[in-house]
Each structure stands twice: as C-alpha cells, then as structure tokens.
Nucleic acid binder design. Structure first.
Length: 551
RNA sequence: CGGGGCGUAGCGCAGCCUGGUAGCGCAUCCGCUUUGGGAGCGGAAGGUCGCCGGUUCAAAUCCGGCCGCCCCGACCA
C-alpha cells in the first residue's frame, strides 16, 4: 500500500499544544494522530486509527489464540441489568433515559450484558466459554487527564470467562495472563504484572498490568527484579530507626506548641523514625487510632482494607472530645479507643503523644505500655527495602494497561446464570473478566518509545512501515522506490508534498515510522536512496532496485 | 466536589492593570525566486475577543453571573 501525504488528513503541529503535559499527549496531538473533542473525549484521526487497529489486531490474535470468541455487545444497555448487579448507583456510571422515561446505562464494562447472555449456557458440556469484544466504554470521570491516559469514552477489549468451578477459573485466568504478556511484548512494552485492588468488583484475585512511564499508578519495584507491586498493595521493609537509650517506663516530657513530628523530633533530638504518629480515623461511626512511624505516610487504601470502605480522618472536634487533647498531642498510651498500629511499630520504643496538650511520652512500647492490633498501614516509599531480598525499592509512575479479575459468582448469582453440572445439580457459572485499553497501550508505547524529535514506533504497531521523502525533481524515482517497497509487502507513506526538505524530515521524525527513505538529486546519478532507521539514526545507501530486500 | 490557572484568527501568544476603530509569530491562499534538516521577497484572506447581563457617550479591557478547558487534590474496574 502506498499513501500520499499530499492527500492525507495529517495535520501536524510545530509546537506542543498548550494544554498538554505528558509526552504521549503532546506527541500524539502534534503528530496528527488524535484530537480532543471535549474533556476526555477524543477522535482518532487517520494515522492514530491505524495504530489503534494494529494494537487491536494484536490483541485479537492473542485472544483467539486462547480460544476466546469475538462478538459485539451494544453500548446502550437497559438500566435493569445494572440494577440486578447493583452497579446502577455507582457515580461514574453514565445514565440516560429514553422518551418514555425508561432508564439506560452507557456501560464502563460489560459484565452485566455478557452474564445476561451466559444464561443461555445450559450444561457443563459447553464449558468453559470465553467471550470478548472491542466495545466503546463510557465513564463519567470526575477528572479526565493526560491525553489518552484517563478518558471518559474509550474502546476496550473486555473478555469474560465462564467455568464450572474455581479450578476452571484459575485456568482461564492463567491463560489470559499469558496472552496479555504476549500482547504487551508484541507491542514492545516494558510491563509488570502485579497484584491489584479489586475495587468495587467484589472479586477476590485481580492483577494489573503496569507499564512504567507517565500514568496514574505507582509501580514499586526491586532493583534485583524479584518484586513488583502497585503501591496500594506493595509491602516495603522500612529503614531501621536510630533508637535512643531504652527506658524502663514511659517518660513524660514537655513539648510546648510542638504539633508535628518534625518539631517534636528536633526538640527532643530524636530520630523521626523513633517516633510514632497518631492519626484518629472514623470507620462506621467509631473512632480508631491509627498509629504509624513518624516518617511514614498512612496509606488510605490499606487502612480501608482493614477497617472497611468508609474510613475518614476524624474531625478536630471529635479528636478533642475523644482524647481530651489536641491532634498534635494524642497517642496510644491510655487511648480511649482501639489502637491499630503499623507492623513497623511491633518492636522498639517510640516517642508518642501523651494525650495531654503540649506533652509527649518517650519510650512507649507496644505490648508493654499499650495494646494494639497490627496491620500493614504505611505507604511504601523510596528507600524501603525489598520484602523478598532486601534490595532497594524504587517507585515510578505507570500506566494501567490491563486488569484481570477473578469474579467468581458475583454476577452469575444475581443474574441466575446457572448451568447443570455432571452430578445433576444446578450451579452458578464461575466467572472472570479481563480488560485491555488499546488507547492506553498506545499512550504507553509512546511514553516508552520517543525522543526529542518525536515518536519512535515499534514496527508491530507503526501506522506505516516506511516513510518515503521526495525532494524536488525526483518524483518519478520516489514513485519507483515506493512501488518497490510496496511490491515487497511494505506499507508506504509517500511524502509528495510541496514542502521543504527540513519540514518533511521534521514531520517524519515526529510521526516516527520505523524507517525513512530519502529520494533526492543524488538518486538521479546513482539510482540509490538513503535508508535511515528512526530508532538509531543509522543511514545506508541502497539502490532502488534492491530496496525490497533491504527490510 | 475543594484549590490554582486559562479562554483574543487553524496553532502558539501579546493587548486587559490605566476603556477610545484588535495585533505579533507560525500556518493558509496568489505570484516570483529558492530547494538534502522547519527559505526569501511582494500581495491577500481569515476574529460574534467563550456566553449572557450590567456600568459607560464608548467594553477584549471595568462589574456580576454562567459555560468550557488545563493542572493539583478528592474520586476511580
């Protein structure tokens, strides 16, 4: 295939768009791949759509490879299906009504619809089934951002597995994980499969596929490659505290006006890591005192996992009412409410609030001076050690490319999606669901494959294989070169525009096809062209006659 | 939803404080010259200054309300 740039809708921009921050957003817009229509709503223009199609085809091949069956479910979905699952009232769900006031949902994923169809599965003999589609998803995101990173409408490949039992689900889950690995490898992505929070899905196990780069997730990794986790699920070993001399009993000290760990540790000349921070929270109407080491941050996802969904920090009035002291001076010793302490505080003696204004206690020790439940509450941070090998942990931003869930019977029970098993009993289907966002895959590829000049597409997803740049006076030779490449099965973008060489080269670098062929006046003398690799800048001279074999 | 910023030609911006016929660069169109890393000269086209209202002889500019977009946070299959 040969496409002429002079006829192509490819509006490249010389400057970065003013509202873009991340590299993939800037480059995809500048390169004429995508344009914004509204916040979090994008059009894929011809080049961008070609990339999307390439990614989709890779996903399709790998899904088909594990026996999944492609179909297409509608966007417009009756509200009753979502009332059945209980998801109708989630705030991110787009809802609308028809002229008769009948409720509809624009779904953000299709569990309900696919489970609805799964009611037609009758017998264990038909299992397992794996169905998927590339469907348009809608989400009333409170805050879209970062180009394709977080959007309100997007295409997702979502698949759903239906098995007889847990063992079958494990197998479907494993196959998906392997297929996902192959998909991301074919897209030349560096990625990590990590444990994830299941959110509102009610599922048990769920794994995220994270690609380092920009993005909204934080990936924790060990330098030795034996540990990777999303920060919300990650465990780190905190650095060792520098404890002062051991005390036989807690000792009260005056700390007038000292409210923060920083102030207290400076005043008392104590390592902040040898202090403990008390954070009263309210869960289900009850106050609990969360206790973490002075240098740590409370991880809200982790405390929510222990105390339940609705945890909030206590209000100042609640604190003084409960503890009889200001928030800067409260502590676990003599606490009127249960203490939930981070694992790091099991051993050692810490400086804590005395539950009296302007007083702290030195040498407070869990088990001796106060009772506490222990849990992992601290947010992993730079400088922590790997829980497996003790190596250094690093934290980097990452894009969530895909998410795989073991749903179990969360949907099949309310939908009564049952089958008759070998033993003659009726059982609910055991389900899994598995998503990949091609748009995020594209963003991640650009994040990981670009330089100062523009995008550097991996060949597997490049919109075209070769960019042929024609300089003036050699139009015929450029056509000849393009035909040779086309005959060799390569797709060609022929830049036949009446533009200056520099402009064409700059656009070629920006658009980022893997190879560039320059046809210029020299070609008239030697019948050869310059072939340049976008990734390396390496250039070689190749006769047009043998261009086909040069790739 | 809380905090901050922005809205003027296709893109990037100035003008607003201190009201008086709307400007710059790039892009676009025509002509000539030029042509291996974003050319030069000459000519031209293109804007309800986000929207509504108010103040004023006069509003891009001052005041009020609304809308949209970006960033941080909250939120988040």
């Amino acid at each position: 295939m040969i496409v002429r740039a002079s006829q192509l809708f490819l509006p490249t921009l010389r400057a970065d768009p003013a509202d873009a921050e991340v590299a993939s957003h800037k480059l995809l817009v500048r390169g004429g791949f995508i344009r914004q229509v509204s916040a979090g709503v994008w059009t894929y223009m011809p080049l961008g759509w070609r990339v999307h199609q390439k990614v989709v085809q890779i996903i399709r091949e790998e899904m088909d490879g594990i026996g999944a069956q492609e179909m297409l479910a509608p966007v417009l979905t009756p509200g009753e299906l979502w009332e059945t699952s209980g998801r109708y009232d989630l705030p991110v769900v787009f809802k609308l009504q028809d002229r008769n006031g009948r409720k509809f949902v624009l779904p953000m994923s299709h569990e309900e619809t696919f489970t609805f169809h799964a009611k037609e599965v009758q017998s264990y003999k038909q299992l397992p089934q794996v169905w998927y589609h590339f469907g348009t998803k809608e989400r009333d995101e409170p805050r879209p951002r970062g180009g394709l990173l977080r959007v309100r409408e997007f295409i997702m490949k979502d698949s759903y597995s239906f098995d007889r039992d847990e063992a079958g689900l494990d197998e479907s889950f494993r196959k998906h994980a392997e297929a996902y690995g192959r998909i991301f490898e074919r897209c030349q992505l560096e990625f990590y499969e990590v444990e994830a929070e299941s959110g509102e899905m009610g599922g048990k196990d769920s794994n995220d596929f994270l690609a380092p780069g920009a993005g909204e997730n934080f990936l924790v990794r060990c330098e030795n490659g034996d540990y990777a986790a999303d920060i919300e699920a990650a465990h780190g070993v905190p650095s060792t505290a520098d404890f002062p001399a051991v005390l036989a009993a807690p000792e009260e000290v005056e700390t007038p006006g000292m409210r923060t760990i920083d102030e207290v540790s400076k005043l008392l000349d104590v390592d902040p890591r040898a202090t403990a921070k008390a954070m009263p929270v309210v869960a289900e109407g009850k106050v609990v005192l969360a206790l973490i080491r002075g240098d740590d941050r409370l991880d809200e996802a982790k405390i929510a996992a222990v105390l339940g969904q609705f945890v909030r920090p206590a209000h100042p009035e609640e604190i003084t009412e409960t503890f009889g002291a200001d928030g800067g001076s409260i502590g676990p010793v003599g606490s009127p409410v249960p203490v939930l302490a981070d694992e790091a505080l099991r051993e050692g003696q810490y400086v804590v609030g005395a539950n009296r204004d302007d007083r702290h206690l030195k040498g407070a020790q869990a088990g001796r001076d106060f009772e506490a439940e222990f849990a992992d509450l601290r947010r992993v941070k730079e400088g922590d050690s790997c829980p497996n090998c003790g190596g250094n942990l690093t934290i980097e931003q990452a894009i969530e490319l895909g998410h795989i869930f073991k749903l179990g019977t969360f949907y099949s029970i309310p939908f009564e999606a049952n089958f008759l098993d070998e033993d003659g009993t009726e059982k609910p289907l055991v389900m899994g669901s598995y998503g990949i966002g091609p748009g995020r895959v594209i963003a991640a590829i650009v994040e990981q494959h670009h330089d100062e000049e523009g995008i550097v597409w991996p060949r597997s997803v490049a919109p075209y294989d070769v960019h042929v740049v024609t300089l003036p006076g050699v139009e015929e030779q450029a056509q000849e070169a393009s035909s040779a490449l086309d005959a060799a099965g390569l797709s060609v973008l022929l830049d036949d525009r009446d533009a200056r060489a520099g402009e064409k080269f700059a656009d070629a670098d920006l658009i980022g096809l893997p190879s560039r062929v320059t046809v210029g006046k020299k070609t008239l003398e030697d019948g050869a062209v310059d072939v340049r690799e976008r990734a390396t800048g390496e250039e070689r001279r190749v006769p047009i006659a043998s261009l086909g074999e040069a790739f």
